[in-house]
């Protein structure tokens, strides 16, 4: 993979041309002031005008460029991009929180739950907002090239967004699965505990006639409470999966399927040019029909006028 950089050569020549051009233009301006003083003014003006010109020229042209602000959709697209970035960061946080929540802990893990909930909600709302904004991107009007650019920006952002939401969903379903497994596990443990307890109970039975001990009751209550909470969590996760599926469905319209004809560069160029041609043709047709309509109106009115005049003429002949 050899390459050759010709920039240096190009720059050298460009600078050479510029240094030639600068005195040339100054001499041209000098000559325009008058042919008489040309000889005299050439030398001093050359030196005096050279420096400012060479520094000023590119800067003014640069300015002229930056004055043309990019269209407003560029801001939109940047906002979406930052939102995606933020969502990405949040997702990594969420992964951490997930793994933390799944770890067996003795303390109260409500804190974790709350964190996961808020994170999930934030991410989903971020994604949803970006999606809405993404749709707006194509709504603005502009030239065909500009709208093409917009469409492509939209596509690329949509792909990003879709990947992100897929990622999130995969993580969530993994979490969900683990959670359910754990729940079953807890139930198993509970059962075992109860079993043990009852065994203990039967064992104790001989000595004292107490059904469940105080301790066991509290345990049972706790585990019940625990499972209710888990249930709620699962429901929540399921809900957000639903939401994501919706987003995904909306986005799939925008995303390009890889390996298909739509994914071909030359096909896209051709389809753009044909659609432009089609537009032109339609326009010409419209123009033609419009013209034709006007012409026909004109002609018919003229014919009618002629007829009326003829009648008037005949009437005049008859009456006089």
């Amino acid at each position: 993979m050899a390459t050759r950089n010709r920039t240096v050569e190009f720059r050298k020549h460009r600078d050479a041309v510029k240094s030639v051009r600068a005195p040339l233009s100054s001499s041209a301006s000098a000559s325009s002031t008058g042919p008489v003083i040309e000889m005299v003014s050439l030398l001093p003006s050359n030196r005096s005008s050279y420096a400012p010109l060479s520094t000023e020229d590119p800067s003014t042209s640069r300015d002229a460029f930056t004055v043309g602000l990019p269209p407003s959709w560029v801001d939109d697209s940047e906002e979406i991009a930052t939102a995606i970035q933020r969502a990405r960061v949040k997702i990594s946080e969420l992964t951490k929180a997930h793994s933390k929540a799944l770890m067996p802990s003795f303390g109260d893990d409500k804190e974790d739950q709350r964190l996961i909930e808020t994170l999930t909600q934030e991410i989903t709302s971020l994604l949803r907002k970006s999606e809405v904004r993404l749709k707006r991107l194509s709504a603005a009007s502009g030239s065909s090239e500009d709208s093409n650019v917009r469409k492509n920006v939209q596509r690329s952002l949509a792909t990003d967004l879709q990947n992100l939401s897929m990622d999130l969903r995969r993580k969530q379903s993994a979490y969900l699965k683990r959670l359910q497994q754990q729940k079953e596990g807890y139930d198993g443990v509970d059962l075992e505990m109860n079993f043990n307890g009852s065994k203990f109970g039967s064992h104790d039975d001989e000595f004292s006639d107490v059904g469940f001990s105080e301790e066991q009751m509290t345990k049972l209550k706790k585990s019940e409470q625990f499972s209710v909470e888990r249930e709620r969590e699962i429901e929540q996760v399921v809900k957000s999966v639903h939401e994501l599926a919706q987003i995904m469905k909306d986005l799939s319209v925008l995303v390009i399927d890889q390996g298909t004809i739509v994914d071909r560069i030359d096909y896209n160029i051709q389809s753009v040019s044909t659609s432009v041609e089609d537009g032109l043709e339609q326009l010409q047709k419209a123009e033609r029909t419009q013209k034709k309509g006007g012409m026909i109106m004109c002609a018919t009115s003229l014919v009618i006028m002629c007829f009326i005049m003829l009648v008037l003429l005949i009437l005049k002949e008859i009456l006089l």
Binding site: F65, T66, G68, P70, P71, V74, S143, E145, D146, N148, V149, N152, V153, R155, S156, T159, I256, Q258, G259, V262, D263, R264, I265, N268, I269, S273
Partner: peptide, 29 residues
């Protein structure tokens, strides 16, 4: 190369050299 790969590289418009010079709208961004 595919269109979606181009999009990943932030190439948002592909044009032919003769059609790009037809329009003169500034796109300095």
């Amino acid at each position: 190369y595919s269109q979606s790969e181009l999009l990943q590289k932030e190439v948002f418009l592909v044009e032919l050299v003769d059609s790009i010079s037809k329009s003169s709208e500034s796109m300095s961004h």
